[in-house]
């Protein structure tokens, strides 16, 4: 696959390297130092940084402004956009705004339902869904047109991503659904956190059989456990999460003081195993409020130094 945008992440994966991304959640306030501090921790060890968009439906500084902070620091942001809070007018407008700051990556999502957040009485929009948003960005970029049909002066140049959860139900439509996302315009996919490697490998294999891994970069999502409690919580409480019993057991069999280290070990081992898997083009490391551990994970997984691409 050849790079079609100025995105550094796209160029790295197009050149055949494994891409590495991580994420940065904006603060529940307006202090830019919080963002800068988190981003500083990720500098040099990832190719691009996802900036979440009011994740779990809790109000935070907007993704776009945070992406601009990262861009001004010389980092490569990935603008996450959910279809929950904005209609097609606002979404396209924010895409243009991001493009005006030369933000080159976007991740299209539907977003958690607002009932999970701090404003459960709010409306949700869902004028478009995540696939239709991906299609919209591609249309803006490739056709230079708004959804309404008018021409865009200086269209956005964005590498378009989407999320996939190989573990959600029903499993049988997980690959057809991936195919639809790619058909809609997704060029890279970041997956839900992977703990069940067998199931993930099966999913990638099916995607490969359908020729999907040739059309799209699959970035495997990983999240290190901080504790056995977190492993249990993810297993039992987070919808669409698949944490096998032996992984939970491995965490709870580890003594309290060493659990964080064991969580990192599991994460590193996961990356090492999946690095060898055909069809995996990179890793998305989601160290939730634990950004300081990302450099260690990237290094131990043998993903440093990051390739230089101009």
């Amino acid at each position: 696959m050849n790079a079609k945008t100025p995105s550094k992440l796209e160029k790295i994966m197009a050149a055949g390297h494994l891409g590495v991304t991580s994420e940065c959640g904006p603060p529940r306030g307006s202090d830019p130092e919080v963002i800068k501090k988190k981003a500083e921790l990720l500098k040099g060890c990832v190719d691009a940084i996802n900036v979440t968009d009011n994740q779990t439906s809790v109000v935070r500084t907007c993704s776009l402004a945070t992406c601009i902070h990262l861009k001004l620091m010389g980092l490569e942001p990935i603008l996450q956009m959910v279809t929950r809070d904005r209609n097609r007018i606002a979404l396209q407008s924010d895409i243009l705004g991001a493009a005006s700051f030369d933000i080159y990556n976007v991740l299209c999502l539907s977003g958690d339902h607002q009932s999970f957040g701090d404003h459960p009485q709010g409306q949700n929009v869902h004028d478009l869904d995540s696939m239709q948003l991906a299609w919209t960005v591609r249309n803006m970029r490739d056709e230079g047109k708004f959804l309404g049909g008018d021409e865009i002066k200086r269209p956005p140049q964005m590498f378009v991503g989407a999320a996939a959860n190989p573990f959600a139900d029903p499993f049988e439509i997980r690959v057809p659904r991936l195919a639809k996302k790619i058909e809609a315009g997704a060029e890279f996919i970041q997956t839900q956190c992977i703990y069940n490697l067998e199931k993930f490998e099966k999913w990638v294999k099916q995607a490969e059989d359908r020729g999907l891994t040739e059309k799209c970069y699959i970035m495997a999502g990983v999240t290190p456990f901080k504790s056995a409690g977190m492993a249990k919580y993810m297993k039992n409480r987070v919808p669409g999460m698949d944490v096998p019993d032996d992984v939970v057991k491995r965490m709870s069999d580890t003594q309290k003081g060493k659990q964080a280290e064991e969580g990192i070990n599991i994460c590193v081992e996961t990356i090492q195993r999946l690095k060898e898997l055909k069809g995996v083009s990179g890793f998305h490391i989601m160290a939730i409020e634990w950004e300081e551990k990302v450099p260690e994970i990237v290094e131990r997984a043998g993903l440093l130094p990051r390739p230089e691409i101009d």
Binding site: T83, R84, S110, G111, D112, H113, S115, F116, N124, H126, D129, S130, M131, Q132, A163, A164, N165, A168, D169, P170, I173, R177, K180, A184, Q192, P239, G240
Partner: peptide, 20 residues
């Protein structure tokens, strides 16, 4: 669908039930 998705299901579908 709680998110009125035309291309669903979302990642929150679990055992045939909605995430909300």
């Amino acid at each position: 669908c709680a998110k009125r998705l035309l291309n669903g299901p979302c990642g929150g579908s679990s055992n045939g039930k909605c995430e909300i």
